[in-house]
Amino acid sequence: MEAVSAAQIIFIVVALLTVATTFLVVTVRNLIHAALWLVATLFGIAVIFVLLDAGFMATVQIVLYIGAIAILIVFAVMLTRRVMQDVGPQSNENWWLGTIVAAVFFAAISTLLWSIRWPALPGAVVGDTVLALGRSLVDPNQYVIPFEVASVMLIIALIGSITLALPGKQSE
């Protein structure tokens, strides 16, 4: 086995940290803490995107996930704070089954992954992917329709969320 390169070292460190923070996200009792650890996890994933030469993805990861979704989750946690149980078990009675399923899943996937010969990293330098991505999303020959469908879906989700979150008449 050849020597461990700098990129590999960086990957291993980032990956381990990210997995560790993720573990904390799914296990800590205090949900505020979990949300904060989630931010850390998302940030770690952004770093991984950078390692994959996907700078735009990393930017989106930070802006969208950390800037929007994570904050949203923090707000949700705070809004439902009154019934949050910081004491007592945070897992249901089937947690061990969940653990087994997750573990078996991971084991199976890993076994599969490691049994396959994956292609090596292509040598070609990746050019301006942002421009290509932008063009592809508005190109009728490529992804304009999924893009438009996604935008419509976002609008619907937005309206649906507002409708759902609005106080109902009965609850007044």
Partner: peptide, 9 residues
């Protein structure tokens, strides 16, 4: 969650 557990199993 129970349903999901069964499904995944």
């Amino acid at each position: 969650q129970d349903y999901l557990l069964i499904t995944l199993t």
